[in-house]
Amino acid sequence: MGNKTLENFWDVTLTPEEKERLEKIKINDLGFGYDIFGLNKDWLKTAYAVVKLLYQHYFRVESTGIENIPKEGRVILASNHSGGIPIDGAMIIMDVATKMEPPRLVRAIVDNFAAAMPFVGLFFYRVGQVIGHRKNFEVLLDNDEAILVFPGGTKDIGRLFKDRYNPEKFNVGFIELSLLYKAPIVPVAVVGAEEQLPVIHKWVKLGQIFGSPYFPVTPQFFLGGGPLTNFIPFPSKYHIYYGEPLEYYKYFSEDTVENPEMVQTLAADVRSKVVEMLQKGLKKRKGVFY
């Protein structure tokens, strides 16, 4: 899709205020309108124009604690991951871009398999998402970007519905990089995504055909369309909670990364903060759809 086509699309879809907001987002343009990962503002505006419909009208996202995200400088947002497909990531990115002043673009770390998939990998790169490799993480931190990680990984998003709101054990890579690069960690809890696509079974063989680790079977699969209706999410209402920044690097030296047990403890600490926010959010929630 040419950039002219994209421009025509977002030009008629976005309000002047939204255009102005998105224009304020800084990218490290290498001279042709793209950053080193392939992020491009026309694609970003187009994605914003599409996702805002889901954000405002379908999932009706509400959030608390956006002020906990630093206005500038490197920061790692660590969230639970749920709902079969990564809509939660898109909603967090959208929420930060919409509510922060000045707006920040959050760069989500996505799973490796996405890069091999035609269109999917391309789309992720163009809208600022980055394949999960330590070096990529380092480049982003060096550029003082805001990074979104799902330390529970693909296991977390593929959790079965019966295990909802019980995030997987957190991986430790983000803790190590937070200590090495002195980046604060903002714990993020997403309530509502678990119910959009309740995963009742993981169909590994079908997933492999599409280059994905598994195919998440949801109740929507049985609505008559099989795989076609499987990914139509229920309009559950999203509540996003941003916790206070955790600045472990102020108390632990860089050498802590050599201590696996301590790093594991810090990762577990972030997870417990996320779980705590999830529990509070669930108590406050009046219903799944409102």
Partner: peptide, 9 residues
Amino acid sequence: RPHNPVILD
């Protein structure tokens, strides 16, 4: 490879 980092040293 698809999962290479953005820059290779």
